[in-house]
Design a binder for these strands. Structure first.
Lengths: 193, 193
DNA sequence: GTTTTTGTTGATTGACGAGTCAATAAACTT
DNA sequence: AAGTTTATTGACTCGTCAATCAACAAAAAC
């Protein structure tokens, strides 16, 4: 049943299926066949479009980071003033699309992938750098010279809250996660110079 | 060359080799043969003593958590008063033995293992609970009702700083990691009630 | 309407790796 | 000295899985 113009649809389906499969399995040790089946095709087709398992993973990772980025940008669009914008960035990091069980678990696994895969590492680094730069930019007028350190601390805290959520048994508690991070922001802004 | 009383020595060697191998590879996808070779024995012997790869991993994880615990206790032993003790706990988390490249990378990978392996998950949970309880105990006299939230935040921040260190290309910067976390403590203690 | 491009899969290959086993040997027991 | 326990490994089995390939089908191009 070959329908023309299938490529982008198939690729998207595979990326989605990869995130779901890795997220559910909680591990990168999933087979191409599993992913392909979930995406409704044969494993041969998955290889046909992506060439290798590695490339499938990288595409999925790119997708996750893109979603993060988009949600942060979305949250940012309505915010005015440094404090509002700072809080919007944090909020964006915990929005619906990103702070979901499989997404979190998949993210953790891609983090591990970045330990071995140079391209995965590059992607993650680019993303982190951009995030830190955004945070620093809003923090500068709020905490001055401390901006760099606070940006790093915030980034690390967000990552930490994420991996802790990956380990929780119930559905991740978005509100509580957000509370922890926002209170960090509160503390830093209380004593601003 | 069978020397009697080899079991504990072999087991220890395997645990050590596992942490090193996983840490270096940055992945759990290492073979029993690799681990065994590094520990100076055949893979058959590794299976003989541990029964399965899974059990080898669990033993390695237990070892890592034990080392953490010991270092925290060590740091705690000389500290007096809640604030000193709180800072000692943090310090213990970043001590020489734990905050090392392979240990960090291995820890991250065991974190991932805990997503799938019930026993690994249990171990990690027990460890986290104890750590949080320790933190809370020292925080209570310092920040009162906020103790629970701060303990959680601190725990998450420490985890976050760890995984970020796993991604760094150079040797992990212990001093900087510590600075980030200690400043979090500073902020929380500044406005104590 | 034939050729080319795009889509698709079942079957196969080839490698790798966990776990088992039989065999060998040194040390301890009686 | 014979028997038992502990240590140790090379060789093998068996399953799994990424990747390839040959073949078929439909649409597009010519």
């Amino acid at each position: 049943m070959p329908k023309v113009g299938a490529e982008p649809i198939r690729r998207a389906a595979l990326v989605k299926a990869t995130i779901e499969t890795v997220g559910e399995a909680g591990s990168l040790e999933v087979t191409v066949a599993q992913i392909a089946r979930r995406a409704g095709m044969s494993s041969a087709l998955a290889h046909h479009y992506f060439g290798s398992k590695e490339r499938i993973f990288l595409a999925a990772m790119r997708s996750i980071l893109t979603i993060y980025g988009a949600e942060v940008r979305g949250a940012l669009s309505t915010a005015a003033g440094p404090e509002q914008r700072l809080r919007a960035i944090v909020l964006g990091n915990f929005s619906q699309g990103s702070f979901r069980r499989e997404a979190i678990s998949a993210w953790l696994n891609f983090y591990v992938l970045a330990q071995t895969q140079p391209e995965a590492r590059r992607l993650l680094r680019v993303y982190q750098r951009r995030m830190r730069s955004n945070l620093r930019h809003e923090l500068r007028p709020l905490v001055g010279a401390r901006a760099e350190a606070v940006a790093r601390g915030l980034g690390a805290l967000i990552d930490g809250v994420y991996i802790r959520a990956a380990l929780a048994e119930n559905a991740p508690d978005r509100a509580y996660a957000l509370k922890i991070v926002m209170e960090y922001v509160d503390r830093e802004l209380e004593n601003r110079t």
